[in-house]
Design a protein around this nucleic acid. Structure first.
Length: 948
RNA sequence: GCUGAAGUGGUGGAAUUGGUAGACACGUUGGACUUAAAAUCCAAUGUCCAUUAGGACGUACGGGUUCAAGUCCCGUCUUCAGUACCA
């Protein structure tokens, strides 16, 4: 019987699907375990061998946990809203829903053929109205909530409204917009409904606000920072301008501290936690208010500049202030003499994108405004400058410049010849600023003289508070997240507008379906694509979406034209899987389901989601918990970032100006151009299939008439490791691997390549190793006459092989070291083969060990052994130490730490006897050449080291 | 710059608390089987010296601790990833 992997794999994949082998139960006596892969976007290109890496790892773990007696939830689905489908729709006119459906089909077929143990009955798709109904619902809850700093959680907006009505807002401690005026209960009750709504928007966790965006008029859309290159759009090279737009924002900043603290409670890698910490960017310091000195005595208006500083202790070192060019005070305080210069500077900086400004750290630029502020303590005038090293979007957009203590301020001061007072005792600042926080001793600072950083900081804040010109403050870099997209293929907002004020549609009328449009582009007026929908108005009488021409602004109102961003649907999907598909109509997941599964125990995915998806999900989960909809604070307990599988590109070398290609060994001093060729035409020895290449239609005539100069009768290609991509012709498709070697080989090989987290190159030639292993495994059970396993008593050696394998594999899986288990299997099979082991007592448990990695062959052999139940239900073999107990040990005998020979000695031999035996050995005598050793180190069971 | 990860044969990588460096594979070379090829099997394979026996050197580099260092400590270099005028 041959190992016919194609037939075996198909057979078991069908069997698992038909019997719903991997369906998870929401009621079980077993402990639960939830294994999840990061949500895939079903791209049109399908999978390459790099994609399944994480899925294979999580699948091994899920299968292992089942063997270990857990009720495992291992679902899969699609983040099916998104840009590529929309882009494709714009180009071809095809509805994104249609192409998305096709892509999902391809994706599913490819996933199925790898043999994953997904519970497909729980599949979700973000673009499914039954799913986005609940995304819309969550949005409404966010709108209906505010963040109460006193209770330190989100509360229903009603609690806020009640307080407003009874006592005004002066006692409210909320996370809200900055520009909030104090009002009394009486005032509140007298406000018009619109005025009240406007105020409430400043408190809601999702709110409409003017946001500065990168607007590209030619594309009619907003661009992300990384879509802009050198000030023009990456696609098409169109001009991009900074523009204010009214957009939905999410008040994630309310959760900054909890998002930071929560990191200590989850089992993620340090690097991932670190990038989230950086992103949140907490800095502790003080806010200080500087009064602007009026230019003339008749000047009535008085201005104040608020700054944030992490070093309030250096306040006496301030010698100037710098405002961001966009700062609203700039136009108000600039003197007439400086006006022209300041305006020219502002115009110049407005043209540079924020990213450009940040990237260019070296050029120092700025302009004096002519105005002065008053130092809060010394009352000395301080010149006010503007400079683009100060960012409008961070802090208050203004800094108090302390050149002796901050390198950027120092450079700025040097450049413009501004005074650099030294307020540090015994520190030389003639070359650079003293930015260190260690060994600070303040001098020339009035009441702070002689104090260290900690003391001075405390004292300054105390004094500032006394003056009413400052207070201790913590600042976060984390900014509220823009939630509107000017796109078609996303979740529509459940929002309509009455007199310009946003109104939520009642949850009972959800979902609001994405309307049909005839084109997926923005309108001529620059409105988002939904502006093209004819049926896109809300009737408050029938509670339905009706034709736009019925809009009367009394009962029928326009609907929101933006859609939600990609992260909306992916911020809560892990809860949706918890509920069985048949029970999803009335809630996003039932309380029982949420209580049973709690959160994701193991989450595997790419590190590119470090600050996007992983931060937004945590934010939504904390919010949902505050409002009592879920009961966990963090969504993902343990998280592993899988590395990337890189391609090994192949190159041929064309001699410059000719149609001649030189083999890799011949290019030495020649002037050659390396050209990518398809890796399919290269064998394991880097030799090129020239005929194949010549006849490949995709390359056209390029190689048809080319001459190939061989070395030793073959053409050798050059190789280089690069990211897998179509344009580099190094993409390897899992379909062909499954066809040629089988899914089990693919699974094993992906794991065998190296540690999960690491980046490593793919080389198809290497797969023959694991494929050979599977054949050897097969032969251990089956020969030409069929099954050869018997009920013979296993040998001691075979028992030892089995049990050391159990031990190692179990340790490996628990520590996610899947690559080493594959080696362990190889060693086990090599050993059992040479032991001629045929004992069922050994070979049956061995299959369970291997089955998470190579489930198809394991199932097949398992059933050949006479089992009727799927191997996935079998209990993991139990390791027994007694089989590994040895009576002797092969000791390495070292001289001065270098191993010279080995000696087998009984393990129960005493130190003294070991020393005697070793010293008497002829090789020892030869090594010592008559010397007497100074010392003999004996570590029983480990090593003997002779010194001297 | 900062933060994080990493640097081991021709290649991917192993060495879990300091204790035989290079497991397991790929590739290469030689051999068996075959008319031949494929498949399979056997052997060798870190580098250098030596006919052998054996020896020297070897985990990015330079130091150190230790009987013993890929592993611990100090310094340097390189690569990758994230992030960045963050006040």
């Amino acid at each position: 019987m041959k190992y016919d992997f194609n037939q075996i794999e198909k057979k078991w994949q069908d069997h698992w699907a038909k019997n719903e082998t991997f369906k998870a139960e929401n009621k079980s006596d077993k402990p639960k375990y939830y294994v999840l892969d990061m949500f895939p976007y079903p791209s049109g290109a399908g999978l390459h061998v790099g994609h399944p890496l994480g899925y294979i790892a999580s699948d091994i773990y899920a299968r292992y946990k089942r063997h270990k007696g857990f009720n495992v939830l291992h679902p899969q689905g699609y983040d099916s809203f998104g840009l590529p489908a929309e882009q494709y729709a714009i180009q071809t006119g095809q509805h994104p829903a249609v192409t998305t459906e096709e892509n999902i089909k391809t994706y599913r077929r490819q996933l199925d053929q790898i043999g994953f143990s997904f519970d497909w009955s729980r599949e979700v798709r973000t673009s499914d109205p039954n799913y986005y109904k609940w995304t819309q619902w969550i949005f409404i809850q966010l709108f209906e909530s505010w963040y109460n700093n006193d209770s330190n959680k989100a509360e229903h907006i009603e609690t806020l409204v009640r307080t407003f009505a009874s006592e005004g807002n002066s006692n409210i401690n909320a996370i809200c917009d900055d520009n909030i005026e104090i009002f009394s209960a009486e005032a509140w009750n007298n406000y018009s409904s619109e005025e009240q709504q406007e105020i409430l928007l400043k408190y809601r966790l999702t709110y409409l606000a003017e946001t500065e965006v990168n607007w590209c008029p030619a594309l009619g859309t907003v661009l992300a920072n990384d879509e802009i290159v050198n000030g023009v759009s990456e696609r098409g090279g169109h001009t991009v301008v900074r523009k204010k737009m009214t957009q939905w924002s999410m008040r994630i900043s309310a959760y900054a501290e909890r998002l930071l603290q929560g990191l200590d409670t989850v089992d993620w890698t340090d690097s991932l936690k670190e990038s989230q910490r950086n992103w949140i960017g907490k800095s502790v310091g003080a806010s200080v208010t500087f009064n602007v000195i009026p230019a003339t005595t008749s000047d009535e208006e008085s201005h104040k500049i608020d700054v944030f500083t992490t070093r309030p202790d250096t306040i006496f070192g301030v010698s100037f202030m710098t405002l961001a060019p966009e700062h609203e005070l700039v136009s108000k305080i600039t003197t007439s003499e400086q006006k022209a210069e300041v305006e020219a500077y502002i115009e110049k900086t407005a043209k540079r994108s924020e990213r450009d400004r940040m990237a260019d750290v070296k050029t120092i630029s700025g302009v004096f405004t002519g105005a002065y502020a008053e130092h809060p303590f010394s009352k000395e005038p301080i010149p006010i400058w503007i400079g683009d090293y100060v960012l409008a979007s961070y802090g208050t957009g203004a800094v108090m410049a302390v050149p002796c203590g901050d390198q950027r301020d120092y450079d700025f001061a040097k450049h413009f010849n501004i005074d650099i007072p030294n307020i540090f005792d015994n520190v030389d600042i003639s070359e650079e600023a003293y930015a260190s926080k260690d060994n600070v001793k303040i001098a020339n600072s009035d009441f702070l003289d002689g104090m260290n950083l900690k003391k001075a900081t405390k004292r300054v804040i105390f004094e500032l508070e006394k003056l009413g010109q400052g207070l201790g403050k913590t600042n976060y870099r984390l900014r509220d997240a823009v939630f509107s997209r000017q796109r078609y293929w996303g979740e529509p907002f459940p929002v309509y507008y009455v007199n310009g004020m946003p109104q939520m549609i009642d949850a009972e009328h959800l979902p609001i379906h994405l309307p049909e449009v005839e084109k997926y582009l923005p309108t001529e007026e620059g409105e988002p694509p939904l502006g093209r929908a004819d049926v896109w108005a809300w009737c408050t009488e029938t509670n339905s979406v009706v034709s736009n021409d019925k809009i009367n602004n009394t009962t029928i109102h326009p609907l929101e034209l933006n859609t939600m961003p990609g992260w909306a649907g992916s911020s809560w999907y892990f809860f949706r899987y918890m509920e069985e598909a048949s029970n999803r109509d009335d809630f996003f997941a039932s309380e029982e389901a949420l209580n049973y599964w709690e959160n994701v125990d193991l989450y595997i995915g790419g590190s590119e989601h470090a600050t996007g998806h992983l931060l937004y999900s945590r934010f939504w989960v904390k919010f949902l918990k505050d409002r009592g909809f879920v009961n966990v604070e963090e969504p993902f307990k343990k998280l592993i970032n899988q590395g990337m599988i890189l391609g090994t590109s192949a190159f041929v070398y064309r001699e410059e100006g000719t149609n001649t290609y030189l083999s890799e060994g011949l290019i030495k001093d020649k002037n050659v151009v390396p050209i990518h060729v398809k890796v399919q035409y290269v064998n394991a020895s880097d030799e090129l299939d020239i005929e194949g290449l010549k006849n490949d239609g995709e390359f056209g005539e390029e190689f048809k008439n080319a001459e190939f100069i061989l070395e030793d009768g073959v053409y050798k290609v050059g190789r280089e490791v690069e990211k897998m991509s179509k344009s580099k012709y190094n993409v390897v498709n899992p379909d062909s691997i499954c066809e040629d070697y089988g899914a089990d080989s693919l699974r094993l090989y992906e794991m065998f390549l190296g540690p999960l987290e690491q980046y490593k190159p793919w080389k198809t030639s290497g797969i023959s190793g694991v494929h050979g292993f599977l054949k050897k495994l097969w032969k251990l059970y089956v020969d030409d006459n069929g099954l050869k396993v018997d009920n013979s008593e296993p040998s001691k050696d075979s028992l030892k092989t089995l049990h050391k394998t159990i031990k190692k594999v179990e340790e490996d899986i628990e520590s996610f070291s899947f690559n080493t288990s594959v080696s362990t299997f190889m060693i086990a099979v090599n050993e059992l083969t040479s032991q001629k082991c045929a004992s069922k007592e050994i070979l049956e448990p061995l299959l369970i060990l291997i089955s998470p990695y190579a489930p198809h062959i394991a199932e097949e052999l398992w059933s050949l052994l006479g089992n009727n139940e799927s191997i996935s239900t079998a209990t993991f073999p139990v390791f027994e130490e007694k089989h590994l107990v040895e009576s002797s040990k092969t000791y390495p005998i070292s001289f001065n730490g270098k191993m010279r020979f080995t000696l087998e000695l009984p393990l129960d031999m005493s130190k003294e006897d070991i020393e005697k035996t070793v010293m008497a050995h002829e090789k020892t005598i030869a090594q010592l050449e008559g010397r007497t050793p100074k010392k003999v180190i004996i570590v029983p069971g480990k090593i003997v080291n002779i010194v001297g």
